[in-house]
Design a binder for these strands. Structure first.
Lengths: 222, 222
DNA sequence: GCAAAAGTGTTCCAGATACACCCATGT
DNA sequence: ACATGGGTGTATCTGGAACACTTTTGC
């Protein structure tokens, strides 16, 4: 079976930067390439777009195939199309990034099995193709969005404490934040509500648990 | 001649939202489609990406073909890929937007010849395909970037007055700005310098002419 | 001299920043 | 009782917003 066109067509893929927070670190999911080119190198998960699915559907399909996760935050990042970025044929990739909440259990890659693994942003291996460039852009986008949106909430489980949320900010920004100012800012948004419950976590005062008012919305703030 | 692949490939195009400021209005360049589908409807300029050119090169080529203009600001906007957005075959389009300075003389479309024309953003015709959606996103991006970058400078000729620049802001934002606050903000950026020259424009005090320090850079501010 | 747009400073307000102590719990 | 992290309020600073008059020119 073969497909013919009157003029040349590029291949189109989606690649996904899958972020989560684990072990007090911002981590990204990478896959070890089994085939050339870049055999044995680590790469972003991704694959060809089917002709009957939208770009976002393609990205969500890849995401589900690699992690078993669905229903998480996914945003188009940028489209990369240097003619020589893949030595086999012309491949244009529409890059997305996804944020996975910290409590999403049994992500396939959590097992670190067969060539799928989480990497901390400071322990990245060499990446195949132009994937390092894609990953860097995704990180920049994420850092930028922390400032003017509620994107960080997408890393949180349904119920979370403010110190937990603050830690997410600190890990992504790479700097410490003032506890009182952080609380003031978050609470003044009016986008979280107390659940009335608390989380006890060791030999200290328990923290109040909150929920997002609109868990699946990322709001632009300020 | 025909091109064959082992699995189906989509077509990839670039479409360009070309903005300029003319006659005290933000205008966009549209082309009347000569062929089906949407024959006779207005559409964004664009075309297929050649296999040996990058996406941005393809967009610049289309831009030059339609307007004769090169060397202007061009930024990738978003990639649109709904499976049914073109009835002929699967077409994925990487949308760009371009900003053309107000003094760029003899833009081909300025003549309003044969099916190429500038439209004010409040006099838009029905657009082919999903081009209305693309245009709306471009306008939103432009408005957003006014606030946190020097993107408006890209509409200005080499030398310009502050009242002229202010008018560009006002036209894009659709609201009046305070003259003193505007001046203070722009001058405090330190990104424009006086030329020492003035522009006389009628029966009133002449305005000082300024130049951008980095005419081809769009700086993120604030 | 009059009409028209250019140029110029100060006050006020709101939101961000800096900062230190008490509280609830487990051991 | 003490160690640990959770929770709280105020003073200060800074950048944005509001606001009115003088200057230079063409006619």
């Amino acid at each position: 079976m073969s497909y013919s066109y009157d003029y040349p067509h590029p291949a189109v893929t989606t690649d996904i930067v899958i972020f989560t927070i684990r072990q007090d670190e911002l981590k990204v999911l990478l896959i070890k390439r089994a085939l050339p080119p870049h055999q044995g190198a680590w790469a972003l998960p991704g694959g060809f777009v089917n002709l009957d699915e939208s770009l976002e559907e393609g990205a969500r399909r890849e995401l589900a195939e690699e992690t078993g996760v669905s229903g998480v935050y996914l945003e188009q990042l940028y489209t990369f199309g240097r003619p020589d970025r893949d030595p086999r044929e012309r491949v244009i990739t529409v890059a997305y990034y996804a944020l996975i909440p910290t409590d999403t259990i049994e992500i396939r890659a959590a097992t670190d099995a067969e060539g799928v693994s989480w990497f901390g942003m400071n322990e990245l291996p060499e990446l195949a193709f132009d994937h390092r460039e894609i990953l860097d852009m995704a990180q920049r986008r994420l850092v930028d969005k922390l400032d003017y949106s509620t994107i960080a909430f997408q890393f949180m489980p349904k119920e979370f404490t403010l110190p937990e949320l603050q830690q997410v900010y600190e890990l992504i920004l790479g700097e410490a934040l003032d506890k009182r100012n952080f609380r003031k800012r978050i609470l003044s948004l009016g986008l979280v509500m107390e659940t009335g419950k608390e989380r006890k976590a060791g030999a200290h005062r328990p923290a109040k648990l909150y929920r997002s008012i609109h868990p699946d919305r990322v709001e632009v703030i300020k």
